[in-house]
Simulated assay, not measured.
Amino acid sequence: MSTTRPIRGATLNNGSGRFNLPAREADGDWLDTREGIDGAPPSLRTTVTVERPRTIVSRNASPDVPFDRSINPYRGCEHGCIYCFARPSHAFHDLSPGLDFESRLFAKPGAAALLRGELARPGYDVRPMALGTNTDPYQPIEREWRITRQVLEVLAETNHPVTITTKSDRVVRDLDLLAAMAAKGLASVCVSITSLDPRVAATVEPRAPTPERRLKAVRALSDAGVPVYVSIAPVIPAITDHEIEHLLERAAAAGARHAFFIPVRLPWEVAPLFRAWLDEHFPDRAGKVMATIRSLRGGRDNDPGFGTRMKGQGPWYDLLHTRFRIACRKLGLNQQRVVLRCDLFRPPAGPQGELF
Rank of each mutant, 00 (worst) to 15 (best):
S58E: 14
D125N: 06
E142R: 08
H321F: 08
V191W: 06
A26N: 01
D32T: 13
K108S: 06
I71D: 07
S70C: 13
V189F: 03
L152F: 02
N134D: 02
V48K: 10
R149M: 07
H90C: 07
R297C: 11
E25W: 08
L266V: 09
V339T: 06
K216T: 02
V270G: 01
V154F: 06
D64G: 02
P227F: 03
D32N: 11
G287P: 02
W30H: 08
R297S: 09
G76H: 10
L186K: 01
S188I: 10
C190Y: 02
D279A: 04
T135D: 03
A259G: 04
A252W: 01
L221W: 00
A208E: 05
P42F: 13
R300G: 10
T33W: 13
I141Y: 12
R87S: 03
L296W: 12
A202Q: 09
R104D: 11
L273E: 12
A201I: 08
V338E: 00
R329G: 10
Q352H: 04
L99C: 02
R213E: 10
P237A: 10
M290F: 08
T33P: 14
R346S: 04
K216F: 02
L114Y: 07
P128Q: 01
V171N: 01
A238I: 10
A259P: 06
G123A: 07
A349W: 08
G15N: 09
L196P: 13
D176I: 04
N334V: 13
H321R: 08
A220S: 00
G350P: 14
K311N: 04
A26L: 00
S43P: 13
R24W: 08
V230C: 06
D318E: 15
P263Q: 02
I236G: 15
D29A: 09
P140F: 01
P348H: 05
W316M: 10
I236C: 15
C84D: 11
V339F: 00
R219C: 01
F324D: 13
A112C: 01
H242N: 09
F324L: 10
P315E: 14
E280M: 13
R75C: 12
V228A: 06
A40L: 10
A187K: 00
G307N: 05
A224Y: 02
D197R: 09
E25Y: 05
R146W: 05
D32A: 11
Q335G: 11
V171Q: 07
A61Y: 07
P53E: 14
S62R: 02
R300F: 08
P348T: 04
C84M: 10
T166L: 05
A86W: 12
N334S: 14
E142F: 11
A253R: 09
P6R: 12
P263K: 07
S192V: 09
A23Y: 14
F67K: 00
T240K: 14
D27V: 06
N13A: 03
W145L: 13
T55V: 11
C190M: 08
S2L: 15
E243T: 14
T158R: 00
L21F: 09
A201R: 06
A187H: 00
E142I: 05
T322D: 12
Q150W: 09
A208H: 01
T292F: 15
F282P: 08
S222F: 01
K288N: 15
L344I: 03
P41W: 02
R294P: 11
A254G: 11
F306P: 11
R275H: 08
F260C: 06
D29H: 03
